[in-house]
Amino acid sequence: MAVSVVDETAETRSAAAAAPVPVEAGAVSVVDDALYQRLAEMAAARADEMGPGHPELRPAAEQALYHEARLLDDRRYRAWLDRFTPDCVYWVPLDLSGDPREQVSYLLDDRRRMADRIGLLETGWAHAQNPPSRTVRTVSNVEAWPLDGGETRVRCSVVTWEYRRGRLTPFASRNDYVLAALGDDWAIRVKIVGLVDCDGDVPKFSFVL
């Protein structure tokens, strides 16, 4: 086996370096055509009128989204990942009504690639996150509707401010969630980040939206 030629002690390694996390058991993608079909239908119905949200679901939905926002702003990425179901999808589309089977996105991750995204930061060599972004996100306009099987559909507006290397950059999005559970054990099955400028000039980003 070839030996790395790079000096492990170089100062260019960021403070984010963490011990390797073992490969998750059963790290096999759950993405199949049925899951894509669900995402495509969600995208196609994005602009449909859903009627007023259910006020009795909103407080619990808000608690989940606020907690998620705090985990991300605090860069507790492993704890964030633990709030996703094994069959989850995290999707940042370029075309808000497109079918992900036919189009490329900024990213469309299953749990395995989410773990990779976090693992990349944990190597300490992700230059685009050295120094890391500081973020603060405001979650508002939260609406929630019940779905079959105990799931909850949630929509909200999010403004994320990223500060890094002297620049403050806003990212505005309307997010869609399918929550598999509410309450203390809240869990995300689907998260879709619909950036308002998704088909425009998005500044480079390397933190988790």
């Binding site: 089977r101 490329v104 900024y106 685009a128 980003f205 390397s206």
Partner: peptide, 25 residues
Amino acid sequence: EEVNVMRMRIAEDFPSLGNPDDLEL
């Protein structure tokens, strides 16, 4: 069709995991 579905996901892989480091540099 399967090939092109996978091409879409592969096209997000290095561009989102690797390209930000290029742009940073």
